[in-house]
Design a protein around this nucleic acid. Structure first.
Ligand code: MN
Ligand code: MN
Ligand code: ZN
Ligand code: ZN
Lengths: 151, 151
DNA sequence: TTAAAAATTGCAACATAGTTGCAATTTACT
DNA sequence: AGTAAATTGCAACTATGTTGCAATTTTTAA
């Protein structure tokens, strides 16, 4: 068991359980967000679907992770690396959803621009998603085109 | 049968059928977007669920309507009032999803700001959703507070 | 106007994401 | 160690969306 992750759970006053540590370790190992179905593929044999849902929901509430819906409306999750808490989420960055590999990227460098709402429309939080082709898939496609041109 | 709507279908080279006219007339009558489930409640007795899905998908492809996912990941649809076509959608406006009444509003006055993507991330389209409390629900809440203060 | 071709519909069955209640187990607390 | 509190796993369920196919409707063209 990973001590660093156990401490993270402690910091948020959550009991240290196997499912939670497992989920955290997977989330930490990824550079892009991950969906419940993907997680289920990875650890579905060891951990119940429902536990997965409840774990992710709790993490989201506590501000350990944040949730983004992909182009199919499926929930994807990524660790909050900024300092988020139960009260305030600091995840106002743009997300990039690749239409080829379906990966969801947190573009932490891109802050969501602030907009003035119409009168009496009171905003709580915002969501900026860009759909397109990600770096990996773009480079893969470029390589393919190059190889075709050579022949 | 509404002639204006029949003409709209003609313009997009779609055959004039009852389900399509019905869906269009509902969409036209609304000031905010509507979800498939809501539509099903309204006309589920007359039109099959599957037909509804296929109608909405086709309209979306043709550029008659556009689709926005709400906070539950459910698809909502609204008429495109800008001139959209199969090739180019001109719906780059902000959407507002009320967390109280769940209504999805097209804020056509608010254009989505343009952002520069990281190298090799190729954007195709963008999605800017603001979650919060809409005009109607805000005013309702204000009235309630006023009435409490009077007593 | 009528007949054939093409498109659309309705039905049944299925797929996937997510939820709820409850008893059994695990974790935290003293 | 013993108890209270939290979490887990199971079963059953709900909701949104999809697919194949035969029957019906709409379009096209004679
Ligand atoms: Mn993110
Ligand atoms: Mn809109
Ligand atoms: Zn990709
Ligand atoms: Zn509202």
């Amino acid at each position: 068991m990973d001590n660093e992750l156990a401490e993270l759970l402690g910091k948020y006053k959550l009991s240290k359980t196997e499912p939670r540590l497992k989920v955290l370790s997977i989330l930490r190992s990824r550079e892009s967000a991950i969906s419940q179905p993907e997680l289920e593929n990875l650890i579905g044999g060891e951990i119940d679907r429902v536990t997965l849902y409840r774990t992710l929901t709790k993490f989201d509430e506590k501000g350990i992770i944040h949730k983004v819906l992909d182009l199919n409306g499926t929930a994807n999750y990524a660790l909050c690396n900024s300092s988020c808490s139960e009260d305030t989420h600091n995840d106002e960055h743009v997300h990039f959803n690749c239409t080829t590999c379906l990966n969801m990227y947190c573009l932490e460098a891109l802050q969501i621009p602030h907009l003035v709402m119409p009168v009496n429309f009171v905003p709580h939080n915002v969501n900026f998603i860009v759909y397109g082709v990600c770096e990996k898939c773009t480079l893969k496609a470029n390589k393919y085109i190059e190889s075709k041109n050579k022949t």
